[in-house]
Design a protein around this nucleic acid. Structure first.
Lengths: 243, 243
DNA sequence: GAGTGGTCTAGACCACGTT
DNA sequence: ACGTGGTCTAGACCACTCT
């Protein structure tokens, strides 16, 4: 019984390879260096024969490896091990309430200010707004066990969400409300470091000049700008993920 | 000719739906609010009938929607529209050289220092190293058009990569070398904001107390710690993505 | 032109989890 | 027990792109 594909749990038995078997076996070959970056991988029909499964099974394994950035596929040219692995990190952006409660801390929300005004120029530019539109400007604080956790500076396009004009955000945070209003959207998110200015220090209970991890997010729904938010985190905040 | 699934490019023709048709049509229903968060979505067999395609085609569409965090699937319980969309952002972590050259800037690398020493305690803890191991400590600078772009503080586990002991990193940066040595790995990455200290200001040509966007990454290969790196970026640096 | 991946089918069996 | 999604098959046709 020829076994060209070593080390998978079913080797030595009569079991057929699943797409996960194929995927992890090929991944192992690449990790071990049997197949080096740039190398041509056998085509799907040959691999199907090797693993004793249908071509569709191999196809799924290879498709996922390609999605993971491990290999590169092109019709006719075949499949190659990527020269430099595409390193991509995926962050889950949780609802703040859930993030804080996951830390076994008590979540508290507080509305600092709320006002309606014509959109300032910098916001029009950032959200690609055309003409004059009224926006709702909200400032909110989020606390974990009573300690400041995040300062939220949010602007909502009232043309896109007129129902926000009469909403009362003193109890429900705009983030959770927006999630219930807009089930899906495109977004641009960016991370940076900023200094705590006088306005921030009062709310985050930190010193002027402390470094503040900042997340900005702009959101569109069906091509129309919905909201821009700048979230400033307490000193020492980290955002972590594995990949 | 019944058309239960409105608005896809092939509607009104005799064409059969592809998995992309099914995916985008279902997504449209969710965006429009036809199917609200929490709603039960028809099962795969019914959808296959509706769209006039095989169940496998519907399955692929639904599987991808689940991967994208739009819906939630459970055997027997069926498929539901997610209550709160899982917001996840995917960042591409490019090779620094490519990132800088994509900005039409000239990339330059410089080795600041290189020394071999026993692993300090904090590093052993962070990388879960057992016992005493020698590590290679490198400090490097990366420039774009001659301006400081990133300060790299890297530690390499010489037990995992003994060949690094004799490498000359004065020309080739450790990042690019590691990528060619380890085609695949697990990693933990985290973002935070820090203050420029005296050591950083000289290299980044900034002032003491400037906010510095910091990325840290720890890497493992087959369960063994390979490297830890802290990358400090020039003031004003942003990391952006869409999702 | 020809080889490769991309997709679809109609059917089948299985794993899981709700009932 | 039974309904749902998860996966596999053997075959087919198509789309891309390299030579």
């Amino acid at each position: 019984m020829p076994e060209r594909w070593t080390q998978w749990s079913g080797s030595g038995t009569e079991m057929k390879a699943t797409y996960k078997d194929v995927k992890s076996d090929i991944l192992a070959k690449i990790v071990n260096g049997d197949w080096a970056p740039g190398d041509l991988v056998p085509n799907e029909m040959d691999l199907a024969t090797t693993y004793g499964c249908a071509r569709a099974t191999v196809n799924r394994a290879m498709r996922e490896l390609a999605e993971d950035g491990i290999i590169e596929r092109r019709r006719k040219a075949g499949t190659r091990v990527r020269m430099t692995r595409a390193r991509q990190a995926k962050f889950d952006i949780p609802i703040l309430r859930n993030e804080i409660e996951a830390l076994n801390a008590e979540y508290r929300y507080s509305l600092v200010s709320s006002e309606i005004a014509p959109s300032p120029d910098w916001l029009r530019a950032r959200l690609q707004l055309s003409g004059t539109t009224d926006v709702l400007h909200l400032v909110c604080m989020h606390y974990a066990d009573g300690y400041p956790y995040q300062y939220e500076d949010r602007w909502i396009n009232l043309d896109a969400l007129p129902q926000a004009r009469d909403m009362d955000f003193s109890e429900l945070g705009p983030n959770e409300w927006l999630l219930s209003e807009t089930p899906f959207s495109d977004a641009e998110i960016s991370f940076s470091a900023a200094l705590a200015d006088q306005g921030l220090t009062d709310f985050l209970e930190c010193g002027v000049g402390d470094p503040v991890f900042t997340v900005e997010r702009s959101t569109w729904l069906a091509g129309q700008a919905v909201t821009y938010v700048r979230m400033s985190h307490k000193p020492g905040h980290r955002m972590t993920t594995r990949y």
